[in-house]
Amino acid sequence: MTLPVLCPEADRNGALAAVEILQPRAVITIDSVKAAAIGAKTDLVKPLLVIDLGAHLTEAAVLANGCVIEARRTPHGTADLRTSITINSLIEYIRDMMADLLSHDCGPQVVDALERGPLLAGGGALLPAITYQLSKQLSCPVLPASGAYTVALRGATTIALAAHRHPSAH
Score class of each variant (00 low, 15 high):
M1C: 03
M1P: 00
M1N: 03
T2H: 10
T2A: 03
L3I: 04
P4F: 01
C7N: 09
P8I: 00
A10F: 03
G14D: 04
A15H: 08
A17R: 14
A18E: 11
V19E: 11
V19I: 10
E20C: 05
E20K: 11
L22G: 08
R25P: 01
A26W: 01
T29L: 06
D31G: 14
S32P: 03
S32Y: 00
A35G: 07
A37N: 04
T42Y: 11
K46Q: 14
P47D: 04
L49D: 00
V50M: 08
I51E: 09
I51A: 12
D52I: 00
D52H: 09
G54I: 09
G54K: 02
H56N: 15
T58E: 04
E59Y: 02
E59G: 03
A61H: 02
V62E: 00
A64Y: 12
A64T: 05
N65Q: 14
N65F: 12
N65G: 15
G66N: 10
R72E: 15
R73A: 06
T74I: 12
P75F: 10
H76V: 14
A79P: 03
L81Q: 13
T83A: 15
T83R: 15
S84H: 15
I85K: 12
E92A: 13
I94Q: 02
A99W: 00
S103I: 01
H104S: 02
C106T: 00
G107Y: 00
Q109I: 01
V110I: 12
A113I: 06
A113Q: 06
L114Q: 04
L114V: 04
L114Y: 06
L120K: 05
A121F: 09
G123H: 12
G124A: 08
A125W: 00
L126Y: 03
L127T: 05
Y132L: 14
Y132P: 01
Y132H: 15
L138T: 02
S139N: 13
P141I: 06
P141Q: 08
P144Q: 04
P144F: 11
S146M: 07
Y149H: 08
A152D: 11
L153N: 10
G155Q: 03
A160D: 05
R165E: 15
R165Q: 14
A169M: 12
